[in-house]
Amino acid sequence: MKTAPFDYVRADSVADALAALGSADDARVLAGGQSLLPVMALRLATPELLVDISRCPELRTYRREDGVLTVGAAVPVRTLELDPAVGGAHPLLVRTLRLVAHPEIRARGTLCGSLAHADPAAELPALLLATDGEVEVAGPDGPRRVAAADLFTGPFGTALGEGELVVSARLPLPAPAARWAVDEVSRRPGDFALAGVVCGLELDGAGRCSSARVVLFGVAGTPVRAAGAEQLLLGERVTGAVLDAAAAAAFDGVEVVGDEVHASADYRRRAGRALVRRALAAVAEDRS
């Protein structure tokens, strides 16, 4: 199928982009286009106007500053993945990126685009949530920051308002003491996850867990914190029994969504628990 007709404008600056976004009722931002074009090619999305931000100079940069990696909205994730400096500063990011689709998709796809698209099975929204990241948003009412915890409102839904644009993602770099893992279950490499997890632990001098973060993706309408698991880990030594208990509780209170094609809710829950157990073990043993 061919995309329905649309108006196209190439923005040279964020200001340009905002003006263009405000000029049409149904305008969409085009960055890498790797999520948007497939939907448009099925005519499931038929925007009136596409505002191409992929060449905005101010959005094509990324920088590390004050313990935060800030990534502009026009930076393809493959660029981050292949940059040794990024790999050194944020190895978890690179490990996560390698789970996203295939290199040819990552060569165009952007971090901010994935966050704005908010696919519940996508890896990057979960990473943002797990690491307490946020997005910088520009819009008709001025710039603002939205924390990951507030950004994802439902399947393909975000807290972004009319005419707003994600200009960058802010990823806090993992603390030196923290250990992280990312893992997922998928039928084939590169497919969306049937269940996925990003988890991180910090241990104090006595070997007790001083900070725990377990975020699930591909199992609910948004990436979701496994509060049950986190609570069981806090303050504990990460023994096998504790990890077992944490994994068993990982889906407590999580409203798991299944589908007929890829996997049922029951499967996602069961495979997800095993996945959480495996990921926590990797973190606890720091094999990551």
Partner: peptide
Amino acid sequence: LEHVVLDPIGQPQTSTLLDYLLPTAVD
């Protein structure tokens, strides 16, 4: 991997190659 899945009223649920899974070089 491969399966044409229909819903209870006969609507195909596998309308793209993201849903109808072909073996890849890894499989």
